[in-house]
């Protein structure tokens, strides 16, 4: 019991500290979720704690993800008018993004001779974890592996997103938000909220629409690739 409480409080403390350091440096690689994960992985490894035990201890935090996702309705509501104005652009760019995600993941994985199980699990990596796990199961991949690739994708997106925004000089909040939500789902959405609330609204919409679009087209598309 004490151990469980210790892991829970420890996670919050590590996060608080990492957030403070990120606030000082603003260095993308030190994003609180990234550095907290690294610190906690080292702690888990050093204390030889099985991950299942840690996951049970921190269940309260993971459980808050659901109300936090629902709370994304707030930025969406505050920017409803702007999102409606660009409905067609949003849907078109998200379909383009989803197709790119599915096709490039599978093709690169095949070219690099990764096993079929990995290829099938890596395909839905660009959507939020529960959706990716369900789709991986449907197309004959492993849901557990898919969850790992989703996390890995989020880290890549967290690092690449701001670079791409700068490289292509993307000025509109719509484009910035959509690419963060499409490319790095939930974690990207929270990063987009740091850029601004309009970016956060676009990213929330991108994350949810990407989940729907992927759920619709992935089961038909992946077996053909």
């Amino acid at each position: 019991m004490l151990k469980l409480a210790l892991w829970l409080c420890g996670t919050i403390a590590v996060y608080a500290l990492c957030r403070r350091i990120y606030g000082w440096t603003r260095w993308a690689l030190l994003s609180p979720v990234f550095s907290s994960m690294a610190v906690l992985c080292v702690l888990l490894w050093a204390t030889r704690t099985p991950y299942t035990e840690y996951a049970a201890a921190t269940h309260a935090l993971s459980a808050l993800l659901a109300p936090a996702t629902v709370a994304l309705a707030l930025p969406l509501y505050r920017h409803t008018r702007l999102l409606r104005q660009h409905g067609l652009t949003i849907v078109a760019s998200l379909i383009a993004g989803t197709l790119t995600a599915l096709v490039t993941s599978v093709v690169f994985a095949q070219r690099l001779h990764l096993t079929a199980a990995i290829t099938r699990s890596i395909a839905p990596r660009s959507v939020t974890t529960p959706v990716a796990m369900a789709i991986a199961g449907q197309v004959g991949g492993s849901p557990v592996l898919a969850a790992a690739f989703v996390t890995f994708t989020a880290f890549c997106g967290l690092w690449l997103g701001p670079l791409i925004i700068r490289r292509f000089r993307l000025r509109t909040a719509l484009a910035r938000g959509l690419l963060m939500g499409m490319g790095a789902h939930g974690i990207g959405t929270s990063r987009a909220l740091e850029m601004g609330e309009a970016e956060g609204a676009a990213a929330s919409l991108a994350m949810s629409l990407a989940a729907v679009i992927t759920a619709l087209i992935a089961p038909a598309l992946i077996p053909r690739l």
Partner: peptide, 10 residues
């Protein structure tokens, strides 16, 4: 929100 992703990320 990022805090709630930490357990899954680990």
């Amino acid at each position: 929100m990022l805090l709630f992703f930490v357990p899954a990320a680990a």
